[in-house]
Amino acid sequence: MTTVSPHAPWSYVLQLPHDPRAPRVARKTLRAVLNGHGMTERLDTAELLACELVTNAYRHSDGQATLRLRHMEGGWLRISVWDTNPVIPAPFDKPPGAVRPVPTPAPAAHSGGRGLLLVQLCADNWGGYPLGDDLFGRSGKLLWCELAPTTERAQAA
């Protein structure tokens, strides 16, 4: 029987319809994937980030979305969500590594607008890319965030 190294890169992709239940499905899928790979120490933060990105896709696009979970070299975990709306919200519109503003919360009177703020505050890296039309007619944007390996996160704290 072949065994898989816990440190080997892997990737999962989940297609989500434009449905208000999509964030819940994304959370449950992420929980199953991370539990299956023994990454329970990142579960709560990763679940929050994925849910916020999928919720943003549902609220601001009118089509399907795609959630991708990727365990990368060095132990980083990337969560990305593609949707059909090409508009990249601030501050995700800045290139990775650019000077980014300090997150400021939405006024208390607003009922939304805090999801991407949570992503900024909880992720170790994040960004967005516009996607032009490809061979399959897909366009829109990709928002992503990353969580550092747990050893790096503990040292940063």
Rank of each mutant, 00 (worst) to 15 (best):
T66L: 15
D44P: 04
R21N: 13
A46V: 12
A109R: 15
D133E: 14
P86S: 02
S11R: 15
A148I: 00
P107Y: 03
H110V: 13
A109F: 10
C122R: 09
G97I: 01
V81H: 08
G137A: 09
L77K: 03
A156F: 10
A57N: 05
E73G: 09
G38T: 02
Y129H: 08
S80I: 11
T3K: 14
Q120E: 02
S80R: 05
R153M: 04
G127M: 00
P101W: 01
C51Q: 09
N85V: 15
R70D: 13
D124H: 01
E73A: 12
S111D: 14
S80M: 13
V4H: 11
I88Q: 05
T3V: 14
H7S: 11
H60E: 06
A148T: 07
G137N: 09
P95N: 00
D133M: 13
W76Q: 09
K94Q: 11
N56D: 05
R138W: 10
A90K: 15
T45Q: 10
E41A: 08
Y129P: 02
Q155W: 10
C122Y: 02
V25G: 05
E152P: 03
D83I: 14
P130G: 09
L118G: 03
G36S: 04
G137C: 04
D62E: 14
A156W: 12
A109K: 07
P149N: 12
T150I: 07
K94W: 08
T150R: 12
A156M: 06
L118R: 04
P95I: 00
A148N: 06
T104A: 07
E41Q: 08
E73F: 12
P86A: 10
A65G: 01
A156D: 09
A90M: 14
Y129W: 06
A98Q: 03
